[in-house]
Design a protein around this nucleic acid. Structure first.
Length: 129
DNA sequence: GTTCTTACA
DNA sequence: TGTAAGCA
């Protein structure tokens, strides 16, 4: 039987993105839906690809990284390469995010200090007047 | 009503 | 990516 297809709005609503987003991904070469005249027709593979791209984006991967990983798909050989590559990226992301968290904690600490200084200065001013 | 392209923010 | 214009 013929493969199920989807319109751009079908996928947009399913994944909670706008049609603009999907067309944008196409411009970037992340997906290449077949055309029926002018209309884009997405097949199951296109659908999965978009789903994977959005998943990658959620974990901090750039669109380019998503494509790199997705295009490594190689079921003929376990996908070992792709999986190892993905694991490496995940570890890298984790390290970066943890560093960012430390940086933010430091800034928060700095804010606490400044705020405390300001408040004590106000308290003294109030006591003097 | 839905999708498309193009262009600007 | 959002938004808008002008088509089909």
């Amino acid at each position: 039987m013929p493969e199920k297809t989807y319109s751009i709005s079908d996928l947009a609503s399913e994944f909670g993105v706008t049609t603009r987003t999907i067309r944008f991904y196409e411009e970037k070469g992340l997906v290449t839906p077949r055309r029926e005249g002018q209309k884009r027709l997405y097949n199951q593979a296109d659908r999965v690809r978009i789903k994977l791209i959005l998943r990658g984006k959620r974990i901090g991967m750039t669109l380019d990284e998503c494509v790199e990983v997705i295009d490594m798909y190689d079921p003929e050989h376990n996908n070992a390469e792709q999986l190892h590559s993905l694991i490496a990226r995940v570890q890298d992301k984790r390290a970066r995010f943890e560093q960012q968290r430390r940086d933010i904690d430091e800034m928060l600490k700095g804010l606490d200090e400044v705020q405390a200084l300001c408040e004590s200065a106000l308290a003294e001013a109030g006591a003097a007047n």
